[in-house]
């Protein structure tokens, strides 16, 4: 019998993280007058929509029947984290599409009251999408590796960092397109990710699959080293490392969670 959770869930967790982080980058840049920042914001909005569309496809393909996704949305179990998550994911995707439609035809950034409100709502939903997968895994009492509170901040910061990294990749290496505040946020998210990932690895046992250590190294340690050295292409390097680390982390969690405890 195959493990119940497969590659689709790994991809979904990865794509949801990327979408949430890139939506935050979009919210910080798309209203700016600077042409590079505006272009980056638009690309990030598009990336958010594509990532969420693919993520929802992964989720749906994991169900017994694709129509059952509608069942999850309509049959409300207020105690189920997944039921809330499905609604948050759908609201986030729709909001990203709405924001994209606001800026799609524009050639430079603007921030009317309505646009600001839409971006604020998108930011809040992006944070919710970043946090909730960790919350769902934390609720899994049958899987010892997942059933830890530290899963929530670790997956949340990992997803946000992957999304921020993807956002920087969308800026095509022009870190000047990023507001200084966002660069500071990236460093804080990276530091928090390192702390919580180390805590999680120590708390969940001394020995893990090599994939876990690669995820930590690629996703947090190497980006910190690169940022400290500040080479010319630091943004692209850290972006690629963060995305690879983020995917490896989820692949390890899904694989080892089931391999060891199911």
């Amino acid at each position: 019998m195959a493990p119940p959770f497969g590659l689709q869930i790994t991809f979904y967790l990865f794509l949801a993280g990327v979408a949430s982080g890139s939506a935050l980058v979009a919210c910080a840049t798309v209203h700016r007058a600077d042409a590079r920042a505006f272009a980056t914001g638009k690309r990030c909005l598009l990336l958010t929509i594509i990532a969420m569309a693919l993520g929802i496809l992964c989720l749906i393909s994991d169900l017994a029947n694709p129509r059952d996704f509608i069942l999850i949305l309509t049959q409300a179990n207020p105690h189920s984290a997944i039921a809330w998550g499905a609604r948050i994911v759908l609201a986030f995707t729709l909001m990203a599409v709405f924001c994209w439609s606001l800026y799609r035809t524009k050639t430079r950034g603007s921030a009317s009251r309505g646009e600001r409100l839409a971006l604020w709502i998108l930011q809040l939903l992006a944070l919710a999408v970043a946090i909730y997968p960790g919350f769902v895994l934390w609720q899994a009492e049958g899987v010892d590796l997942w059933n830890r509170w530290s899963m929530v901040p670790m997956l949340g910061f990992s997803g946000l960092h992957a999304g921020l990294a993807a956002g920087f990749l969308c800026s095509l290496g022009h870190r000047t397109a990023m507001p200084i505040g966002l660069l500071a946020v990236e460093r804080m998210v990276l530091a928090a990710l390192l702390v919580f990932a180390c805590y999680f690895l120590i708390e969940s046992g001394p020995w893990h699959h090599a994939m876990a250590y690669w995820a930590l190294f690629l996703g947090a340690v190497l980006p910190i080293i690169i940022l400290a050295k500040k080479p010319e292409n630091a943004g692209i390097l850290t972006g690629c490392c963060a995305l690879a680390g983020s995917f490896l982390l989820r692949a390890w969690l899904i694989q080892d969670g089931q391999h060891l405890f199911f």
């Binding site: 019998m1 994991d62 169900l63 999850i72 049959q75 997944i82 609720q139 049958g142 899987v143």
Partner: peptide, 19 residues
């Protein structure tokens, strides 16, 4: 009503549910 999303499998501390 079961949509086969396996949340119950992950939630069961006794490993008593399967697909």
């Amino acid at each position: 009503k079961c949509c086969g999303n396996k949340a119950c499998i992950a939630a069961c501390p006794y490993g008593a549910i399967s697909i």
